[in-house]
Computed example of a mutant assay.
Amino acid sequence: MKDWYKGWFDSPYYDLLYYDRDENEAREFVAVMAHLLKIDRSHKILDIPCGNGRHCQALLETGAEITGIDLSFRNINQAKSQSFNSIDYYIHDMRNPFRINYFDFVFNLFTSFGYFDSIKENIKAAKNISLNVKNGGILVFDYFNVDHSVYQLKPEEILYRGNIQFTILRKRYGNSMHKDIQVNDGKNEYKFQERVKIYSVQEIQQIFHPFNLELQNVFGNYSLGKFEQLESERMICIFKKQL
């Protein structure tokens, strides 16, 4: 399923499936991260990709200047409808340059990387994410922890959101995790897919190192608990751009 992310992220079923990833979760994570990084109103922040803007809305509470970019037309329209022009949103592909050496903090959250089939395209995305970070700035990179995910993997799961049924099939294919999603709304069936590359902390570090980003710390959950290779659900990597 080529360019799976275009159809899936533009679908209303994406938000419905992940309804538990809501504004409260975003606000709690942003609060602890803002405290750790000492974010204030003097800073410029980019959320890439920003989805429907839930983290941008939470980041707005820091007083900083917030920008969100996303490939999905639907996501950007939804985000704009909630921001009252207090946040700058743009439709933009993360593989292309945006604002070079401009932002104090760049956030890449909720496994929003590794979408592309070729190594070249994923490296291109990493390069252009990095270019947005100013010298001395910070990249917050949040990815699923493959060691925990494979250990806890549910090959098949059926979930209900109201009257809508989601049948989810999960499998590892080489260096990628695949999730086939079938949606039944009682009248029609729709098929979607998620595919992301598998990376360890060391591999993520190697990807961003050529772009002058040095790993400072790794956390294992949204409360910024210690990263444990087999037990942590997340790999939240804090990079600093070297001068």
Results as ranks from 00 to 15, higher is better:
Asn135Gln: 14
Ile164Arg: 06
Arg161Pro: 03
Asn188Gly: 10
Glu157Ile: 01
Val150Met: 14
Gln193Trp: 01
Asn135Pro: 08
Asn188Trp: 13
Glu194Tyr: 06
Arg195Asp: 02
Tyr173Lys: 11
Val183Phe: 04
Asp180Leu: 09
Gly186Met: 05
Asn128Ala: 03
Lys134Cys: 04
Leu159Asp: 08
Leu169His: 12
Val133Ile: 15
Phe144Asp: 01
Ser149Pro: 01
Asn184Thr: 00
Arg195Trp: 00
Ile164Asp: 06
Ile168Met: 13
Phe192Asp: 03
Gly136Ala: 08
Ile138His: 03
Asn145Tyr: 09
Ile181His: 07
Arg172Trp: 05
Tyr173Glu: 14
Arg161Thr: 07
Asn175His: 11
Ile181Val: 15
Arg195Phe: 00
Asn128Trp: 13
Pro155Lys: 06
Ser176Ile: 04
Ile158Phe: 00
Ile198Ala: 05
Asp185Lys: 06
Gly136Gln: 10
Arg195Asn: 07
Asn132Met: 09
Pro155Met: 14
Ile138Asp: 00
Val183Trp: 02
Ile158Ser: 08
Ile138Leu: 07
Asn163Tyr: 12
Asn128Met: 05
Gln193His: 09
Asn184Arg: 00
Ser176His: 08
Tyr173Gln: 12
Gln165Ala: 14
Tyr160Ala: 07
Val146Thr: 07
Gly137Tyr: 05
Gly186Tyr: 07
Tyr143Trp: 04
Tyr143Arg: 12
Val140Gln: 02
Asn128Gln: 09
Gln165Ser: 15
Phe141Lys: 03
Lys154Gln: 12
Ile164Gln: 05
Gly136Lys: 03
Leu139Glu: 06
Asn132Ser: 15
Asp147Trp: 11
Asp147Lys: 11
Ile198Gly: 02
Ile198Tyr: 02
Lys171Cys: 04
Lys187His: 11
Phe141Asn: 04
Lys191Asn: 13
Arg170Val: 00
Glu156Ser: 15
Tyr190Pro: 01
Gly162Ala: 07
Pro155Trp: 05
Val196Ala: 03
Val146Leu: 08
Ile138Cys: 03
Arg195Gly: 00
Lys191Arg: 10
Gln182Asp: 12
Pro155Gln: 10
Thr167Ile: 07
Lys187Met: 07
Lys197Gln: 13
Ile181Tyr: 03
Ile129Cys: 05
His178Cys: 12
Asp180Met: 08
His178Val: 13
Asp147Phe: 11
Asn188Pro: 06
Ile129Val: 14
Ser130Asp: 05
Ile138Gln: 01
Lys187Pro: 00
Arg195Thr: 04
Asn135Thr: 09
Asn128Leu: 06
Gly137Thr: 10
Pro155Ser: 14
Lys191Phe: 13
Lys154Ala: 12
Asp147Glu: 14
Gly174Arg: 08
Glu189Trp: 01
Arg161Gln: 15
Leu153Trp: 07
Ile181Leu: 13
His178Leu: 14
Val150Lys: 12
Lys134Leu: 07
Asp180Val: 05
Lys187Val: 08
Lys191Trp: 12
Leu159Tyr: 09
Arg161Met: 10
Tyr160Arg: 14
Tyr173Val: 09
Lys187Asp: 10
Asn128Lys: 08
Lys134Tyr: 04
Leu131Phe: 09
Ser176Leu: 06
Asn145Ile: 11
Val150Ser: 12
Ile168Leu: 15
Ile129Asn: 04
Val196Leu: 08
Asn135Tyr: 15
Lys197Tyr: 10
Asp147Met: 13
Val183Thr: 07
Gln165Glu: 15
Asn163Thr: 11
